[in-house]
Structures are given as structure tokens and as C-alpha cells.
């Protein structure tokens, strides 16, 4: 039975990435029925709502979505629809798997960790006001309810991924109340998971350890801002943002999110590196229970990267999006 999955088309580079990944999944015999929706700034530019009711309903019904990056509003580049979508769907945790890809140059090898980031609170509530001219305060909001839900999710994820250790990343030495509350929630949830080693680390030390010895970590769980910083730092350790992806979780919802830089107008049509969408797609296929197909795509991808004959522009080659997709398809067993 083909499973219905919402495909959130963000436009721009996504216009090249989506056909490429659809082709790859089809070749791997993945049973999926796409429910495609144009969203974000690209939808707005086409005179449609950026985040339509149909799109939100589709994600809620299907429970699974594959998404390319949403462009900012054509009215105001500060309107970030990726963040709005998270809010509209109540997504509360973002998971960033970090693992070296074969053939991809990086500073560190044998990195294999997961960063779990809280998505609803912290400074990202963007509650700010001007007290008097020249004095601004922003609120960092932390609640016990969100922290507890988040850490329960992180511990369950750690267990189901067969991982053994989780670090809570915090700054409770300075933010005694806010991060103190986070730590309390972490410690109390940890009691229900005696099989998982629960540790704590201050965010500045965590960043220092990440650039010194990232292999010491297994799962790192943290608030929104620290998560934003540490996830991208982690991406840098394994070769860059195009080697990473995220899975954003809400109640009964999982969005497999592709990160990609570059504007299509700048890098050109059919020039984007398809890795950013292949990685979340593999995780999606696995989550759909089609493990064999996921493994086929993974090994074909590794074969192409290992051979190194074909590489996209951003990692030192000249292959187009289609050429990369075709190479991966021909490398399938």
C-alpha cells in the first residue's frame, strides 16, 4: 500500500530537488503517494496563501511530510515561513542527525550523534519591546510543561535509536531560574529512563568539546537558541550544511526537512546539490517502514560519493542535480 505523504514545495532550488528525489524514490521502489503543496514565499508570489489550510490539513492527516526550504515573503524578507510553519503545526522538537558521509571532506571522522532542539520556547518566542528609546528587552520564556514534554521526547528518541547517553546542554550557572527549570525537568524525566546515561554540560563547554572531540557525544538535547547554534556547529564538523537534515516533530507529525543554501537565481537551474533532500528522504522512507528501500538508496548514495567521479558544484564537482540523481539510480543494486 502506498503511503500518502505531504510534499511541501518551497520553490527556488526546491523546484530542482523535488523531481530529483521523486525519481530516486521511484527507482528504489518506494511506495508513496505524494500530496504536493507549494508553500512559503513562492506560494505568496504566485498569489496563493503562504501556508494554506489545505497544506496544514494535509500534513495533519498524513502525519508525514517531506519539505524543501520555504522562501521568505516577497513583501518582507524578515518573514520566515519555516518558523511560522513550525508554529502553525505545533512542532516542538527538531532532530538533527550528524554522521560523516563517505567521500565528503571534513575535519572530523566517526562523528555519530543526534542533536535534539526544543522548538517552541526560549528567545524564539520573539517577545520584544522597546522600554525607552535605545533600550530593548527580549524575553526568554521557559515552561516546565514544554521542557518536560521535550525531554520525554528526547529520552524516548534516544532509547528507540538504540543510543545510550544523553547530555542536557544548558547555562544554568547564569540563568539560574530559566535553565534551572530546564535542568530540573531533564533530571525528573531521566528517572524514568534508568537505561540511559543522563549527563549535563554547560553550553560554552559543549561548543568547545564539539570542536575538540565530537565523538564523545551521543545525543545532545537543549533549548531553542543553543540548539540553533550547536546544530549548525555540528554540521560544520562533518563537512557543511548540505551533509545534514532535520526531522521536526509535532503531535503525530513528522516533517523531514531539507536544508540547502544558495538561491536558484544565483546557482542556476538544475545545479543544486541533491544531498540535502536525499538525506531526509532516506529517513522518511525508513519511517514509513520501507527499510529495504531506504537501505538501497543509502548504499547507492554512498557508492556515488565514494567513487567521487560525480560531485555537485558546492562540494568541488560539476554535476547537475539530474546527473547526480541519475548516477544514484544507476548505482542501485
Amino acid at each position: 500500500m502506498a503511503k500518502r505523504v505531504t510534499l511541501i514545495q518551497g520553490g527556488g532550488v526546491g523546484l530542482d530537488l523535488v523531481p530529483a528525489i521523486q525519481k530516486i524514490l521511484k527507482a528504489a521502489d518506494v511506495q508513496v503517494e505524494w500530496d504536493e503543496h507549494l508553500a512559503g514565499g513562492a506560494a505568496e508570489a504566485a498569489g496563493k496563501p503562504a501556508l494554506s489550510k489545505e497544506l496544514l490539513a494535509s500534513v495533519r492527516t498524513n502525519g508525514f511530510a517531506l519539505k524543501t526550504k520555504l522562501l521568505p515573503s516577497p513583501r518582507d524578507e524578515h518573514i520566515n515561513y519555516n518558523i511560522r510553519l513550525r508554529k502553525d503545526l505545533g512542532l516542538f522538537a527538531s532532530v538533527r542527525p550528524l554522521k560523516n558521509l563517505p567521500g565528503l571532506k571534513s575535519r572530523f571522522q566517526n562523528v555519530d550523534l543526534m542533536i535534539v532542539r526544543e522548538l517552541t520556547e526560549d528567545l524564539y518566542a520573539s517577545i520584544e519591546h522597546v522600554i525607552v528609546d535605545g533600550v530593548v528587552q527580549s524575553l526568554k520564556v521557559v515552561t516546565e510543561a514544554a521542557s518536560t514534554r521535550f525531554f520525554r521526547f528526547a529520552f524516548e528518541l534516544t532509547r528507540s535509536a538504540g543510543r545510550k547517553m544523553i547530555h542536557c546542554v544548558h547555562k544554568a550557572n547564569i540563568l539560574k531560574l530559566a535553565d534551572g527549570l530546564v535542568l530540573e525537568a531533564f533530571r525528573s524525566v531521566a528517572k524514568d529512563f534508568p537505561d540511559i546515561q543522563a549527563k549535563e554540560i554547560i553550553v560554552d563547554n559543549c561548543c568547545m568539546q564539539m570542536v575538540s572531540k565530537p565523538t564523545q557525544f551521543d545525543v545532545l538535547a537543549m533549548g531553542n537558541l543553543y540548539g540553533d547554534i550547536v546544530s549548525d556547529l555540528g554540521a560544520g564538523l562533518i563537512g557543511g550544511i548540505s551533509a545534514t537534515h532535520a526531522i521536526n516533530h509535532g503531535d503525530g507529525i513528522r516533517i523531514f526537512d531539507a536544508f540547502h543554501g544558495g538561491k536558484r537565481e544565483v546557482i542556476g537551474e538544475n545545479r543544486a546539490n541533491p544531498l540535502p533532500v536525499i538525506l531526509p528522504a532516506i529517513d522518511l522512507v525508513e519511517a514509513l517502514g520501507q527499510k529495504e528501500q531506504a537501505a538501497r538508496i543509502q548504499s547507492a548514495l554512498e557508492k556515488v560519493l565514494n567513487e567521487g567521479k560525480l560531485r555537485p558544484d558546492d562540494i568541488g564537482g560539476h554535476a547537475s542535480t539530474t546527473e547526480m540523481a541519475d548516477a544514484i539510480i544507476s548505482a542501485m543494486d
Binding site: 528567545l123 535605545g134 533600550v135 530593548v136 528587552q137 527580549s138 524575553l139 526568554k140 520564556v141 521557559v142 515552561t143 516546565e144 510543561a145 540563568l175 531560574l177 530559566a178 527549570l181
Partner: peptide, 10 residues
């Protein structure tokens, strides 16, 4: 159960 911390910038 709900904490606010202020981030002040002048």
C-alpha cells in the same frame, strides 16, 4: 512552572 528571563540590549 513558567520562567521569564530578560535579555537587555541598550
Amino acid at each position: 512552572g513558567i520562567v521569564e528571563s530578560l535579555r537587555l540590549v541598550t
